[in-house]
Amino acid sequence: MSLGPDRTTFPVSTDAARSWRPPPRIASRSVRRALWAVAVLYAALAVFTVDVDLARVAEGLTRASDFFGGLLRPDFVTRWTDIRAGLVESLAMTLIATAAGFVLSIPLGLGASRNLAPAPIYAVCRSVLAVFRAFHEVLVAILFVAMFGFGAFAGVATLAVATVGFLGKLLAEAVEEIDPAPLEALTAAGSPGPSRIAFGVLPQVMPRILGLTLYRVDINFRESAIIGLVGAGGIGATLITAFARYEFESVSAILILMIAVLFVGEPLSGRLRRSVS
C-alpha cells in the first residue's frame, strides 16, 4: 500500500509540475549575463598575460626529465647519515614545539575566552594570539634565524609560536562554547577560580584540544621541512642541500621518508584521539 497522497482524490495539475524548474540562484538575468561576460574576459586576459616562451619550455623539458628521472630512482644510501640526522631533528623539533605550544596555549586560550576572563585580560590574550597567527611560519622562521642563528632552536621557536596561535585560538573558542551550567554549579558550591577551571572547564574542552594537538603534530612536522629551507634546521635543511647539489635521488628519498612518517603517524594519532574522547 502506498503511503503517499491518494492520486485519485487529489488530482495534481501535471502541467504545472512538469514545467517547474528550480529558481535560478541569481535572480536577475542581466546580472547573470554580466557575470558570465566578466568571467570570460578575465580568462582571456589571464591567458594572454602569461608569456609562454616555447624555446624555454623545450629547454626546461630536458631538465624536468632529469628531475623526474631522479625522483623515480630514490637513493636512501649515499646521504643516509644526513637524511637520518635531518629526520630525527625534524621529529624532535615537532615534538618539543608541539608540547611547548600546548602548555603555553592553555593560559593564553583561557585568558582569551570571553566567558572566563575579565575584559582587559581578554583583550591582551586575544591580541597576543592574533599576532602569533599573523605571520606565516616562514617569515617567523626568518626572523628567529636572524635572532638565534641557523639551526633547530630557531625552528622550535617558530613552530612553538605557530602552535600557540593555533591551539590558543581554538581552545578559546571551545571554552566559549562550553555548557555553563556545571561551571555555575561549582560557583554555587563556593569553589575557588582554579578549581572551577580544572573541574568545570577543562574536562569539557580537553578531548577536543588533545585531538587538535595531535593534528598540530602533523602540521608541525610538515612545517619543519618548510622552515628548514630558510635555515631553521630539520629535514628541510637536508632537503635544500640535496636540491642545491642536484641530487634528485636523495631529494626523492627524503620526500618518500616524509610521506612514510606521516603515514605511520596517522593511525597512531587516530588511536590516541579515540582514546581521549
Binding site: 554549579a185 561549582l186 558550591a189 563556593g190 569553589s191 575557588p192 577560580g193 582554579p194 578549581s195 572551577r196 580544572a198 573541574f199
Partner: peptide
C-alpha cells in the same frame, strides 16, 4: 566537586 569550596585548588587539581 561539592567539596571544592573547602579543598585547596592545588590539592583538588
Amino acid at each position: 566537586c561539592g567539596t571544592l569550596g573547602r579543598t585547596g585548588s592545588w590539592r583538588a587539581i
